[in-house]
Amino acid sequence: DATLKLWDLATGSQLATLTGHSGAVYAVAISPDCKKAVSASMNTLKLWDLEQGRELATLSGHSSSVRAVAIAPDGKRAVSAS
């Protein structure tokens, strides 16, 4: 449904629905501090603030669907694969 859902694992309750992608979301990576996430869809990635539940940026450059994303251990870089 082109969304990300944020869940409380202790209670099983949904905390937020993050919207902004125009197509299916294929991959998500969480920053080491658990404050940010990067999601992959179509030919873009989105950077999210998980504490505020909002989109921070759209990252583009791929010409086809992005199927994988990872965040470096320092939380300062991400790598995506299409």
Rank of each mutant, 00 (worst) to 15 (best):
L6H: 05
S13Q: 15
C34R: 11
W48M: 00
L47E: 01
S82N: 04
S39G: 06
T58R: 13
T3I: 13
D74P: 11
L18V: 11
S41I: 10
G23R: 06
E55C: 12
S65N: 12
T58P: 09
G61I: 13
L47C: 01
V38M: 06
G20Q: 09
K36D: 13
P32T: 02
G61W: 11
S63M: 13
S82A: 14
A72M: 01
D33Q: 06
A37Y: 03
T19S: 15
V28D: 05
A40W: 00
E55I: 01
G53L: 12
A37T: 03
Y26W: 03
Q52R: 13
G23H: 14
A10T: 03
D1H: 15
S22T: 15
A16Y: 08
A72D: 11
G75R: 10
G53I: 09
C34F: 03
S60C: 03
E55V: 05
D74Q: 14
A70H: 06
A27P: 07
S80I: 01
I30A: 00
L9S: 07
K35I: 00
V25A: 07
D49N: 15
T44V: 09
A29G: 06
E51N: 11
T11I: 09
Q14P: 11
E55L: 10
A40Q: 03
A10H: 12
K46P: 04
L18H: 09
L59H: 04
P32L: 14
A72S: 15
M42V: 10
I71A: 00
D33P: 03
D8W: 05
T3L: 14
Y26Q: 09
W48H: 01
A10M: 09
A16R: 13
K36M: 09
A70F: 04
D1E: 14
A27N: 12
S82W: 07
A57L: 04
A24H: 06
R67G: 10
L59T: 03
P32N: 14
G75T: 07
L45P: 05
A70C: 05
P32M: 04
S39Y: 00
K46M: 12
D74A: 14
W7S: 02
G20K: 05
S63D: 14
